[in-house]
Design a protein around this nucleic acid. Structure first.
Lengths: 215, 215
DNA sequence: GTCTATAGAATGATAGAC
DNA sequence: GTCTATCATTCTATAGAC
């Protein structure tokens, strides 16, 4: 819960962008290290701001963490939604979704790391747990929906859409972890590998495979 | 580096089992929470022992962490080696390896979590980094070797063994993370799914699938 | 809104008795 | 080997000036 003002009259909207900057910085730090490792001082310093100021915007360190993760989930959703609208062709949406994991790697792996960290430090807060599970749910829905479309359009074999979606996103999570853990892990290559195999499993033999960047 | 005695004459072997117990307990805690969250006091309490005693066995908290992770990697290797000897039939070894991830889930997911945590808290210690990378390397070698055997024996299609191995183990990492993050993630099911797909990719149509899969 | 100053609690680590 | 006692440091959080 964000505060408005501590005691005085509410100044209202002043802070919107300010808070965003706080949250962005906090996200960086919480993802790079973890909740317990990052101190309020670290965050304040990163912002070029005094420690006490953080308590003007947030009730506690935990509160800041919650706000941070909720904000991150929000942004991730945006990403997903944009992708969904962008195109109607199922194979293209799948490609875009995979490319998204390569391009937005920084954001997504941050999310995965924080989600993992959360389970070890805040075993209680249902708000955070909820946000995380909703994210994964949404992810699965997006994929299974587009696979279902592809099947209906006769582009894909009649596989189980949910299962296939889960398979893909589980592998992608694996990629996110490995690219953090293993210094020589080639994310782009690993995702391209999945792409190839996924299309095979879907029985899609279109010659258009994953593209580099171009449109 | 483990100490012998602090100043007095070395008492030698007394501690072997004792140290193991310390490390096992530390592993539990470091995996459940993370390096910074776990205090020396926590570990001491878990052991029913005084704080100071830990400093009798280890130089510092970081030293304890290093010993813990090296110990864990050692045990993981044992697992791998045993598996390798157990059987010569490639499809069986693959099955066993996947089952291993389900059965020894507790150990393996601990390892993955700690490995991930490490990158955020000890960005320096080459010993730890080394241990982790060696583990993954060994894992990949085991799988690619057995796939290569299968191909030579005409059981599998001539796929790229390294690539296939990496694909499998990346997915397995994904499973490990998800089972921590998502409370309703069905690990056994997810691994069984991989098993089916992997055998398909390998062109292995043997009737014998993964145990417990009766339909 | 932002800062200075500091309280109050924990934590990593050490000295030394037994 | 194991414990008691304690120090020095670090950290979250608050009070209050500007």
């Amino acid at each position: 819960m964000r505060r408005g003002s501590p005691a005085g009259p509410r100044r209202e909207e002043h802070s919107a962008a300010r808070v965003d900057k706080f949250l962005a910085t906090a996200l960086d730090l919480f993802a790079e290290r973890n909740f317990a490792s990052v101190t309020i001082k670290d965050i304040a310093q990163s912002l070029g701001v005094n420690t006490a100021l953080i308590y003007y915007y947030f009730d506690s360190k935990t509160d800041l963490f919650r706000a941070t993760i909720e904000h991150a989930v929000g942004r991730a959703f945006e990403n997903v939604r944009t992708l969904e609208d962008k195109s109607a062709d199922p194979p293209t949406v799948i490609s875009a979704w995979l490319e998204n994991h390569v391009n937005k790697y920084a954001e997504i792996h941050r999310f995965v790391k924080i989600a993992l960290d959360f389970r070890g430090a805040h075993e209680g807060d249902p708000n955070i747990a909820n946000a995380i599970e909703r994210f994964y749910d949404e992810e699965r829905k997006l994929l299974s929906k587009v696979i279902r479309q592809g099947i209906k359009q006769g582009l894909f074999k009649p596989v189980d859409p949910n299962r296939m979606a889960q398979f893909i996103s589980t592998y992608l999570d694996g990629c996110m972890v490995r690219s953090v853990i293993l210094s020589d892990f080639d994310l782009e290559d690993a995702v391209r590998d999945l792409h190839r195999r996924a299309l095979d499993m879907l029985g899609y033999s279109g010659k258009r495979r994953m593209k580099r960047q171009r449109r």
